[in-house]
Write a protein that binds this DNA or RNA. Sequence first.
RNA 1: GGGAGUUUAGCUCAGCUGGUUCAGAGCAUCUGCCUUACAAGCAGAGGGUCGGGGGUUCGAACCCCUCAACUCCCACCA
Length: 891
Amino acid sequence: MEIAKTYNPKAAEDKWYPYWMRHKFFKSEPDNRKPYTIVIPPPNVTGVLHMGHMLNNTIQDVLIRRARMLGFNACWVPGTDHASIATEAKVVALLKEQGINKKDLTREAFLKHAWDWKEKYGGIILEQLKKLGASCDWDRTRFTMEEDLSQAVIDVFIDLYNKGYIYRGVRMVNWDPAGLTAVSDEEVIYKEVNSKLYYVKYKIEDSDEWITIATTRPETILGDTAVCVHPDDERYKHLKGKRAIIPMVNRSVPIIFDTYIDLEFGTGALKVTPAHDINDYNLGLKHNLEVIDTIAPDGKMSPEAKFYVGEDRFAVRKKIAADLEEMGQIVKIEDIKNKNGYSERTNAVIEPKLSVQWFLKMDKVSKPALENVLNENIHLIPEKFINTYKHWMENVHDWCISRQLWWGQRIPAWYDNKGNAVVCKTKEEAIEKIRGANKEVRDEDIRQDEDVLDTWFSSWLWPITVFDPHVIKNGKDKANKDLKYYYPTNDLVTAPEILFFWVARMIIAGYEYLDEKPFTNVYLTGIVRDKQGRKMSKSLGNSPDPLDLITKYGADGVRVGMLLCSPAGNDLMFDESYCEQGRNFANKVWNAFRLLQGFEVSDKIGQPNVNIKAIEWFKNKLSEQLYVIDEHYSKYRMSDALMATYKLVWDDFCAWYLEMIKPEFIDGKAQPIDKATYDASISYFESLLKIMHPWMPFITEELYHLVKERKEKDCIIVSNWPKPIPKYDWHILQVFEECKNIITTVRNIRQQKQISPKTKLDLYILTKDGGRSFDDAVIKLSNLNFYKDTKEKIEGAVSFILKTESEDSSIVSAFGEFFIPLTNNIDADEEKERISKELEYNKGFLKSVQIKLANERFVQNAKPELVELERKKQADAEAKIKALEEQLKAL
RNA sequence: GGGAGUUUAGCUCAGCUGGUUCAGAGCAUCUGCCUUACAAGCAGAGGGUCGGGGGUUCGAACCCCUCAACUCCCACCA
């Protein structure tokens, strides 16, 4: 069979993903096995795959594939989030391109456009996940705005309202005067700008005195309802109880005292405009100030302002400054740098604005969510996030859950024309309820709240509603089979940015509605950055397209590349070269297979098996590493688990094992390999494929089928994870390490002396007693057969001769002294130098040990085993030094 | 401003309760090899006062103090 020299990922990817789907290997239904469940953090429907998704979902797929192989009923639930703000913004922008303005559309017409758009593009990201190899149970795909899931959101709202947790209140929001909507804090971008600080003097009422305030926003003077100073400020103590006069409008306002004031800033006196600044608003609440809203939603001065009505706030800033200057009330104007909030969507300067919003009280519901993280009922990985989590949960603010948008679950609150409000599911119910208070009310006077709920108010139910959307309504005792079986889920893999927005809230909802955590482990990935440490983002243009990477390096290569550079819990500095490494690894595995399949197998009975120790060694090595890898997985140390796998395959299997068992060439012809060796090798290779499978699903499936004929459903994806032998032989591994050292030293000598690998070399062993110590020490090697294996297969040409005197290039190992006579090629000086170096090292080592042992306090305080170990080290070092000194003398 | 974290080889990171010479790995680099699985490869080698300073200890990359640089989260200064 002719097999390509390099692995072609595309062919395997196109072949196996549909194959797995066809055989329903991703499918999960409750059964009597133990479940292992992951619910995907739903990407935005509007989204396209970016590097963050890539990282996230690769980790999830690795976990789920391994769990599947460990025999769990593995279930990975996929889906998408309606992402109200992001999606609505996208649809609005799209309509704008078509010349349609959202303002001209009815709610229904807009939603029709939005749904059309979702149907058209909403599936893209899920298709992209398939390219990555994500083994989700696609039959379970959910969308947060599906009818069922939306109903659950409404049920929760009503329930929490009835419990008294949800209330309506006034709050200052980030108002986008261009978009004419409130935007969330996350959508405000703060930028440093050069602006001016205006010093304006206000007259003190009934006196000739003035007080000077400093402001960057003189246009808000018209809405001032107080002047505030610090209670300890000597400059203003005498103003207690006095009032100040606001210029132009000539309003008399109180002078208030509050420690909020920064004595150092400006003049230490602040004008207070509760309607247009969040801090001023808070001061207003505290001191019971009047609120005068002087800026209209479109950013122009409102009639309340009395002056400049209908003019834009920024034009007014200049005008009022000029007018005040003329009135002699400007003291000075300074240049200043400060931060301005801009709308992410329209780039308009955000105007803080008061509005009525719905809130969820967080104090009570957040209690169990905090407790169960602190008592480690839920693990945050890495643990450092526990502190952050605790800090947030202890200082949690009430959650503003309403949004002035159309795309999302509409708030089930109803109002009549007299200001009565009820919360219930349908208009009919609302009419009935309101009639109780207002008999006269006509149906058409009853209107539903225009706002929708925050996206997180639906996604906090995600781990529940993907399994049973009706459980909110039915109650947890009537949970369906799926929810009972899969909930709580095992792992959640997500980005740390949304620890509060989402993770904390899912935990809250879990305890509130099911009295149970939604997941046991939360693996918080790092943020994908570029080499310069910048966050990868579309706007910076520094993010490679993951699909391009897949085309270039293969899905397996990219998966390996991503995880090679992802330390647990830290950000990762991504670079394409990691994908290259991943691709190279896949190719290495491919070629290992090419070697194996090229063997001619001899089934001659009784053929001497020269590889018995190599086989024995790898069996133990494999077991040892299975334990190591398992340990890494259990701690969610993904890159460590991957690196251990990588080294096991590349170094131990390819570089050592395969080289040892590879048949010799005689007369330009490869000799056949004995069946025992062949069978063992194939079986090891299969085990390795399995261990690699979670990381590299495609190539491993491909090779699993190439290495042996298989039945249709015998696939690696559903195969069993290899089991280590119960107790691997540590001694064998040690002995082999020693052999490696000897061999490496021989290679080193070849390199230094420019001796071709083809040149035969003799390896002598030094004995002082005509061979007895040879038996004792070195025979160990040949007894174990390692020596034979390694010398013939790796060095090709080392013979094994007894000598009583050391000469030429020497090797000291735990098994004795070896040397290679280089009669034609002696460079005594070089050799002396080499041995001297080693001697020096060993002397230094001995000295450090001796110092330690000479220290009485060490001998007294350290653990006895440790002291014993030091003594042994001393003895070993002394022996080694003696041997080296003798070698040196001989030269 | 409040909180968390990071700083170890050219790069990306390990280093678990202080104790093997503990200073590691992978990549990159350098040298020699197109050796019939693989040049996306093989073999060998060279790289580091563990951010600076101080302390605790018989012993510190690890614990404490301090300084510096960077990152993230929360709140945002008129």
